[in-house]
Design a protein around this nucleic acid. Structure first.
Length: 480
RNA sequence: GACCCCAUCGUCUAGCGGUUAGGACAUCACCCUUUCACGGUGGUAACACGAGUUCGAGUCUCGUUGGGGUCGCCA
């Protein structure tokens, strides 16, 4: 069976990780069955609309390669795909639902927005009992005709248990008495999510509804609407939350990273996508590295998990390192260039630098910390030359650097292999261990005990002139 | 508060009645090595608790505890 799924975000700002993961599962369900993945913009709350949010949604999906088959920008046979353009459709179905007995007109004033009072947490919400339910249809229509503002509110008269099946959570049973008669069509004529999602999913022939498990409790209400219209509900796939820690879910309000933030921090879109796929899903074997195409092949809803998963930036970082190392050297260099531009102005052998950095960094943001000494030689203590393992101290360093200062200008083909061979030879000729010459040289060139790359690699990146200058400066410091 | 959901190493997870409870990240040790990193080897580390069912329970049932969610003219 070819599945039709939809990603239906509301344009309220950035794209958060949990959202993207939901989109991914929707995409995978559709694609693994040879079906269609569509994009629908849920902008029925004009108060929350954020300028540019739709573009973020488009660009995020495109960046990770999740292309949609139908959507606001490309159209399709079930449009329009922006809810604000479907207002008339919802009104039509809302009135029809009233006639079918699944809803009623309501003239109650909107519930006032509760101030953030200190006892808000202690307040016990009670089920709303709508007095308008007793109004006759004629009476209600007369008031509407008279221009009175109204809403369409769901009518729930059923008794007993509502049951539905969820692909992840299994069979769920909720008492009809526990369901709220929520507003379906607002005073402004826009539908609420509770109504629009049912109408659209049916009209757009959606077969699988994938959404956060916070919707489990209200799913029976949606089923009642499907039922009233005589429609078949979709297959439900409720997915667990993506958490920041055991208590809090990942959210922008807590300052948690969005997809855009992660990319800006030097994470590769493919790595982010791979990581979040595994937050709540696993292939059943030990594989962890998946491209989107590979996920399409391996994905099945049966292997979706039902417990919440904590987003672990440390593991994402490791995975990003895997993706960075898997890049071709040319591609790595191309992607590193803008990061170099941010922190380096000196003339350096950047291609050599890329070769040094690629196996050592986990995110592109690591570049700055790994290269700061290249830009400007930092101040350092003479005691840095003291190293037991390398058998060096300031005296050995002075001797080694003096030899190096004489040797380095003679090296013409300035590359790592030549430098290393030359200095190794120099050490042997003078009865020194490799480390006794290379370790002091690194200090002289970097002012650091440890660096990405060895002494000769740093020299290769710095170039002959700067290398010789730094060695001379170090000698002066040692003898000073 | 009512209702719903969840519960294996610190984290992501495998496990679908019989396992020395496996893998990955992190962490520790060692090896490799011009330091670092990569890579390799090995170690520490988990079935929330209590009853039941069963010859046998991480796996099934019930309860307890803990956590999350819903109860908006937000989605």
């Amino acid at each position: 069976m070819k599945a039709r799924t939809r990603f239906a975000p509301s344009p309220t700002g950035y794209m958060h990780i949990g959202n993207l993961r939901t989109a991914l599962y929707e995409y995978l369900i559709a694609k693994s069955s040879g079906g269609a993945f569509l994009l629908r913009i849920e902008d029925t709350d004009q108060k929350r609309y954020v300028e540019g949010a739709t573009e973020i949604i488009y660009s995020t999906l495109k960046t990770v390669g999740m292309n949609w088959d139908e959507g606001p920008d490309i159209g399709g046979n079930y449009g329009p795909y922006i809810q604000s353009e479907r207002k008339a459709i919802y009104a039509e179905y809302a009135h029809k639902l009233v006639e079918l007995g699944g809803a009623h007109y309501c003239f109650c004033a909107a519930k006032e927005e509760t101030e953030e009072s200190e006892d808000e947490e202690n307040a016990i919400p009670s089920k709303f009992q709508d007095p308008c339910k007793r109004l006759s249809l004629e009476e209600a229509r007369a008031r509407i005709a008279a221009g009175e503002p109204y809403t369409v509110r769901q009518t729930i008269n059923k008794k007993g248990k509502s049951r539905f099946h969820d692909e992840v959570y299994g069979d769920i049973e909720i008492d009809y008495d526990d369901l709220d008669e929520g507003v379906l069509l607002k005073t402004d004529g826009f539908p609420t999510y509770n109504f629009a999602n049912v109408i659209d999913d049916h009209l757009m022939a959606i077969t699988h509804v994938v959404r956060g498990n916070e919707y489990i409790s209200s799913t029976p209400k949606y089923n009642l609407i499907y039922e009233a219209f005589g429609w078949t509900p979709p297959v439900y796939v409720h997915v667990p939350q993506v958490m920041k820690d055991a208590q809090h879910k990942l959210s922008k309000r807590n300052g948690d990273a969005s997809f855009q933030d992660l990319v800006a921090k030097g994470y590769l879109p493919a790595a982010i996508l791979n990581y979040i796929a595994l937050l709540g899903w696993n292939p059943g074997d030990d594989r962890e590295i998946f491209s989107l195409a590979e996920l399409e092949k391996a994905f099945t809803v049966e292997r979706l998990n039902k417990s919440p998963a904590i987003f672990d930036i440390v593991k994402l970082t490791w995975m990003n390192g895997c993706y960075i190392r898997a890049l071709t050297p040319e591609e790595f260099h191309r992607q590193a260039l803008p990061w170099y531009a941010k922190c380096l102005t000196r003339k350096l052998d950047l291609e050599m630098l890329s070769r040094v950095l690629q196996p050592r960094i986990e995110t592109f943001a690591d570049i700055a910390a790994q290269t700061d000494f290249l830009e400007k030689m930092p101040a350092y203590e003479l005691s840095l030359y003291e190293n037991k393992k390398m058998k060096t101290d300031p005296a050995v360093a002075a001797q080694a650097l003096k030899l190096a200062a004489a040797k380095l200008p003679e090296i013409d083909a300035w590359n790592n292999d030549n430098l290393f061979a030359g200095l190794k030879e120099l050490a042997a000729a003078n009865g020194l261990k490799n480390g006794q010459i290379l370790y002091p040289l690194r200090i002289a060139l970097s002012g650091k005990e440890t660096t990405a790359g060895g002494a000769t690699e740093i020299a290769a990146v710095l170039g002959k002139e700067e290398t010789v200058a730094r060695v001379k400066a170090a000698l002066a410091k040692l003898e000073g």
